[in-house]
Amino acid sequence: MKRVLAAFFPGMIFGFGLAAAQMTNPLKVLGFLDLAGAWDPSLLFVLGGAVAVTLLAFRFILRQPTPIFDSRFYLPASQGIDRALLLGAAIFGVGWGISGYCPGPAIASLAAPTSETWVFLPALLVGTGLHRWRTFHSRSHTPT
């Protein structure tokens, strides 16, 4: 239960921050991505503010032997820079540049859903599911 609440509150602060920064508005995001238009550098300030905090805080947190409510830190295993990373990031970039939504704002849009939410979010889940299912499938059929 503690772990469940300890996930809810960071989620809440995250969603509040996204809305406060207007990152839930795809036009605001596209205003940043559109360098040739009336450029709006806001997104850079959002990312800069967030990374300034994580750069400082993560260093301190990861020096602790364990997190507060769990027995270890769950960090991604270092895989190096591979084809999947580059191709995946590029495909994501195309989808983001088309729509102005990345996954966080797409989920947060459920707080005040519009007709866009009901198109983008199901498509996002299908896209995610397609890839997850493919990796699941290949993992269970190829010996490792």
Binding site: R3, A6, A7, F9, P10, G11, M12, I13, F14, F16, G17, L18, A19, A20, A21, Q22, M23, S42, L43, L44, F45, V46, L47, G48, G49, A50, V51, A52, V53, T54, A57, F58, I61, L62, Q64, T66, P67, I68, F69, D70, R72, F73, Y74
Partner: peptide, 21 residues
């Protein structure tokens, strides 16, 4: 607003790592 929202997002990510790893 962008900077403030960003800082909150950074705090949220730090809390999740600190509390739940």
């Amino acid at each position: 607003n962008a900077l403030l929202g960003g800082v909150l997002i950074g705090i949220a990510a730090s809390l999740l790592l600190w509390l739940n790893g």
